[in-house]
Design a protein around this nucleic acid. Structure first.
Length: 363
DNA sequence: AATTCGTGGCA
DNA sequence: TTGCCAAGAAT
């Protein structure tokens, strides 16, 4: 017997409860006051794995800088990344730009309306395709994000491990089973908002919850243990030594390439080592460029260790600010190029690099 | 298909 | 201090 179809909350009761709650408690967010797919898409990309409070200023910046998808498509990637600077997960910004170009070139500047068509665009996965199709075009598709996993697992007592491989199938089916025939867009907004405000990850106030009587987890005292998430992140230790090469007021920087953190962002000459050794002669071993550089420079500053925390990495970084002798003709490696202070400011940079620059270079 | 992509807030 | 994790997607 299938408990999902026999649960008392089915037959639209759950949807009605949660939609009523939403109409009374929803936040007034700018992307909720439009049906323009460009603004809705923009907000959804910004909000991927990101809190509303953190993404809000970026939403306003992007709307102002790029009022239309054509404006975004015509921008340079560096300009888009620079505006995204500080928000993290920079592939979102690169894919945002790619998709803007694709919409302009392949779709005549008109966003596709169907879930299945939206799914083909870069940076748009199952959740975002459903969100755009639902909010902008009223398609009857169920959104499934972190909020929905949490709300459904608690209310219906679904114990499937959300970090397991069959979780998506199980919860998609559950989400679809509670999706109403009409007003599915409001329902989708409602279940996410309910997860964000009422059914919060830590210590939700179930005493005042509109679903306290019907919630399986609340009845069994399992709210704090749902959803089940078994997988823990493994954090890798890394040790960076950045060399800030300055000569006559200009700086050597490079665009990060390859599949590592901060792809597309600019940084300095980097020496990554396996152990936490901060010794110049050690760092310069088997590095003819660095050896020559050190010989022809004075150390303007040797920073303390910056510990930068990412989800999967803990990066300990020392910045060596080198002032190259004015008269010396330094041959930069292929990847490095010279930039003056204004250009350095304009380039997209990681928060780690930007923090140092703000503290000691831009002043 | 398990990993890897940022950053900041919170307990 | 440490761990959790927030409107996920790409590979």
């Amino acid at each position: 017997m299938n408990k999902q179809t026999t649960h008392p909350l089915k037959n639209d009761f759950f949807s009605k409860k949660i939609t009523n709650w939403y109409l009374q408690h929803k936040r007034d967010l700018p992307w909720r006051n439009t049906q323009n797919p460009y603004y809705i898409w923009l907000s959804e990309i910004i909000l991927q794995q990101t809190r509303v409070a953190q993404g809000m200023p970026y939403y306003y910046k992007f709307v102002e800088a790029f009022p239309t998808v054509q404006d975004l498509a015509n921008a340079d990637e560096n300009e888009v990344l620079r505006l995204w600077q500080g928000l993290g997960y920079y592939s979102r910004a690169r894919n945002l730009h790619k998709t803007a170009k694709m919409v302009v070139e392949d779709y005549n500047g008109i966003f596709p309306e169907k879930y299945s068509e939206l799914l083909k665009l870069k940076g748009i996965g199952t959740y975002t395709a459903a969100a755009i199709a639902s909010f902008a075009f009223g398609e009857k598709v169920a959104v499934l994000d972190g909020n929905v996993y949490r709300v459904l697992s608690r209310v219906f007592g679904e114990v499937t491990d959300i970090s397991g491989k069959d979780a998506k199938k199980v919860f998609t089916q559950l989400a679809e089973s509670v999706l109403p025939t009409s007003n599915s867009a409001t329902h989708n907004q409602a279940i996410m908002e309910f997860g964000a405000i009422q059914c919060t990850p830590a210590s939700p106030n179930c005493m005042f919850c509109t679903l306290s009587m019907e919630c399986v987890a609340n009845a069994s005292g399992q709210v704090a243990h749902l959803p089940v998430k078994s997988k823990k992140v493994k954090v890798k230790e890394r040790f960076f030594n950045y060399f800030i090469i300055e000569q006559n007021g200009i700086f050597a920087m490079r665009k990060r390439l390859g599949r590592d953190v901060w792809e597309g962002m600019y940084d300095f000459y980097l020496k990554e080592i396996e152990e936490n050794i901060q010794d110049l002669s050690y760092l310069a071993m088997e590095d003819t460029f660095l050896s020559e550089l050190i010989k022809e420079s004075l150390i303007k500053r040797e920073s303390s260790i910056y510990t930068h925390i990412l989800t999967h990495q803990r990066i300990q970084t020392k910045f060596w600010h080198l002032e190259v002798n004015n008269s010396f003709l330094l041959h930069l490696p292929q990847e490095l190029e010279w930039y003056n202070l204004n250009e350095v400011d304009d380039l997209p940079k990681s928060t780690l690099v930007n923090n140092y620059l703000k503290e000691y270079v831009f002043e």
